[in-house]
Amino acid sequence: MSEAGGSDEVILELANVEASYGPVQALRGVSLKVRRGKIVTVLGANGAGKSTILKTISGIIDPRKGQIRFEGEEIQRKDPALVVRRGIGHVPEGREVFPLLTVEENLRMGAYTRSDAAGVAGDIELVYGYFPILKERAKQEAGLLSGGEQQMLAISRALLSRPRLMLMDEPSLGLSPLLTQEIFRIIARINREQGTTILLVEQNANMALEVAEFGYVLEVGRIVMEDSCANLARKEDVQEFYLGMKAEGVRGQRRWKKKKQWR
């Protein structure tokens, strides 16, 4: 299973994807590529459309135009259940655990599409290895976990479908800096040890650029920049707007407006 690094094969490709909520257009032609075994990040401010990208890949939202190819096959407008079966797991924004089910039942729901009981049991032990606290809380209702523990559960639950591609929507949301670091360390470990490709959406650009190899910058539904994370971290605009290293104060805000037009 694990074939981390190495191959340059494109596992996921979005080509000119447009999506909208009623009259509100959220994605205005997004194209991006994710190579197998890598961690790729999409950065963007609130409302840029990051979550919409992930929901469109998962089949929660049908795109109006464009194609989404996973392992060479088109998956746009497919049923979410089918997308999971094909090998895409989703860690949703805000955790979205099943609050009244126990931790263990939540994990079993993550494995809903699988029928190999032994494999599932093994994978439950595997995620308990990543997050020992979940093993301690196995019989407790998930709604009673702390925010950080719920995030660990959401990641573990997605892992239980044995995805080849994991979509992660702001895993650092609402976590302390220390816990954020721990979560990111484990994301890197999962990628390394399981060979799982990861598409990571973040507002915490610092962390995302550190853990990912390649990054896209999204502004109001459009990709405005793409580069290796090392390069992105050096770019002035990225430093200014996403890494919080403001140089010019109010004038910077004006330039920000101009930047929005740029594509």
């Binding site: 979410p80 989703h90 979205e96 609050p99 089910l101 039942e105 729901m109």
Partner: peptide, 23 residues
């Protein structure tokens, strides 16, 4: 039962149920 727990899951958080591949 798997279906029974999935029914509970679906009524607790329908969106998450979709994400899990529950029909």
């Amino acid at each position: 039962s798997r279906l029974g727990v999935a029914m509970q899951a679906t009524s607790q958080n329908q969106l998450a149920a979709y994400y899990m591949g529950i029909p």
